[in-house]
């Protein structure tokens, strides 16, 4: 049909928190990590063919223990449920990885779903990050209970979040749906106000 008229510049991909300046307070900061590709993998924890296929492509096994994350050469896999994982990958390699996984899952009862744009991730870090999270998250985040590379789908006040502890700082990555990102960011920044002097 009609010839395609490509736009003059490449389309801009943006996220709901683009342009947000980091929020800092005494002992805690709220920042935006680099945009990551995000894939949901579906398959049975007890389906050996599926877990093996996933491990082969990812270069590391999926975390099968509930509430844990596993880092591999191609990305970070977070346990969401007994048949569901979130994989954070370098945005540039996301499409290729999705295709590889889809191919590897051929013939299996498994699925790969690109949700890169569905979710935004914000990063809350510092010695007081736990105190900030405790203002809206009902989880017990004491290091005896929730430590590095633990993850949980839970809530912060009204927002459904995927919480992942990145390091002992502690630093947490908080994944939230696009349309909830602004609200959550605003709420977290507000929760940090107690730890600011002005």
């Amino acid at each position: 049909m009609a010839e395609q008229q490509a736009p003059i510049t490449a389309p801009i991909r943006r996220g709901p928190l683009d342009g947000r300046a980091p929020v800092t307070a005494d002992g805690v900061s709220l920042t935006l990590p680099a945009f990551a590709g995000k894939l949901v993998l579906r398959g049975g924890s007890d389906d050996g063919a599926f877990t093996a296929a996933a491990a082969k492509v990812l270069g590391a096994g999926l975390p099968l223990a509930p509430n844990t994350a596993a880092r591999g050469p191609r990305g970070l896999a977070l346990w969401l449920g007994p048949t569901e994982w979130m994989v954070h990958v370098d945005a540039d390699t996301c499409d290729a990885l999705a295709a590889e996984l889809t191919a590897a899952f051929a013939g299996l009862h498994a699925a790969v779903v690109d949700v890169s744009d569905y979710y935004a991730v914000m990063r809350l870090g510092g010695p007081r990050a736990r105190d900030v999270l405790a203002k809206g998250c009902p989880l017990d985040l004491h290091p005896d209970r929730f430590d590095v590379d633990h993850c949980a789908q839970t809530r912060f006040v009204a927002s459904a979040i995927l919480l992942h502890q990145v390091d002992v700082g502690p630093t947490y990555d908080i994944q939230v749906r696009w349309s909830f990102a602004d609200f959550l960011w605003t709420y977290l920044a507000d929760a940090m106000r107690e730890f600011t002097s002005r």
Binding site: R14, V157, A158, S159, W178, S179, F183, T186, A191
Partner: peptide, 15 residues
């Protein structure tokens, strides 16, 4: 708590 004013209810914007 803090769920008052602008933080009372989230407003979901589209892209």
């Amino acid at each position: 708590g803090r769920s008052v004013g602008d933080l009372f209810q989230q407003a979901r914007p589209t892209a």
